[in-house]
Nucleic acid binder design. Structure first.
Lengths: 169, 169
DNA sequence: TGTCATGGTTGCTATAGTACATATATTGCA
DNA sequence: TGCAATATATGTACTATAGCAACCATGACA
């Protein structure tokens, strides 16, 4: 059974997609492959940073320095839990506490050089690995991948931050 | 810059793919989307099972009942650590210990009904969610996704079990 | 039968993460 | 000034994961 005999697709786009269909299977397979890519990109830094800690690096990279409470909120963590969590990351040289200039009770958390380096290392490894995988494909196949991923990402939308948090990412 | 001007692609398929190219970007975006799907499928069971524990369910589902040592090996865990890890899962009703019929020192671990149910629940949710995402696309777009994911999965290959382990999956 | 190998458990220890309640410092405002 | 609100840190406690070493039970084999 093909997914879209042109006529059927035009009449009812969704009819052919069910939890057991071929596209779903292929998507699941590809998602395993991508999970592998993500995992491999993370592996080299896992001795310096835990998964939940890496997530902090991601958030700080994307939003810049944040107050403790703000950061805890974004990570869905209890403030008091996060304080000690931060202790460990400071001890590990990944983040730094600094006093806010405008309000002396606030504590600003920012990435250290080392924290940034680790984030960049993972991102770079991920890009490297993906480009290596893609280089095994011909130019037209790469076009195919591009179009497919583009369509899927558009339909799926960006995951909410608190969702990927479940995976520690 | 397009990835494959037909002539260039024919001459040197890999030339256009670099860590900064558009396909790589789209792939990363799609991988985030898929991560979201995976995370959401896991969320409902996270009160009954931890991520490392879920991985045990996956292994047992795929390989069937295994000896303690064999299972520990596949999970990259220390045997003694795994023994207590198993204690918790037994207490949680997810797996069962049973004596081997042929060798009285061996202990066989198998999925309980509840363990199987949880695994199935996650898998089903994942398929459901993917099919829901895909249903937002037209039939021809679904074809595009199918082709793209198929090509990518083929180029990437299945991840090694010990790799996805990093993510607790 | 004695010895060694194999499979698993237990004692001990350590770390990460998490939460609740409480303490402390600071700020804003009446 | 004094009190309430805000921002963070600490006391305490619990769970999950993890490793090493020692230990017990069983099996294999000389």
């Amino acid at each position: 059974m093909t997914l879209s005999s042109p006529s059927a697709a035009a009449a009812e786009p969704n009819a052919a997609v069910g939890p057991g269909s071929e596209v779903v299977d292929k998507t699941l397979t590809a998602s395993r492959a991508l999970l592998g890519v993500i995992a491999r990109s993370l592996a080299p830094v896992m001795d310096a940073v835990t998964l939940p800690q890496f997530r902090v690096l991601v958030v700080l990279w994307n939003f810049g320095p944040l107050r403790m409470g703000e950061l805890a909120l974004r990570l869905g963590a209890n403030q008091s839990s996060f304080s000690r969590f931060a202790d460990r990351m400071v001890a590990g040289g990944l983040i730094a506490r600094s006093a806010s200039t405008e309000n002396r009770r606030e504590v600003i958390i920012s990435l250290t050089k080392e924290g940034s380096r680790i984030y960049a290392e993972v991102t770079e490894a991920r890009r490297q690995e993906i480009s290596e995988v893609l280089s095994r494909l011909s130019g037209s196949e790469q076009e195919t991948v591009l179009a497919g991923f583009e369509a899927f990402a558009r339909a799926a939308g960006e995951p909410r931050a608190d969702e990927t948090l479940i995976l520690g990412m």
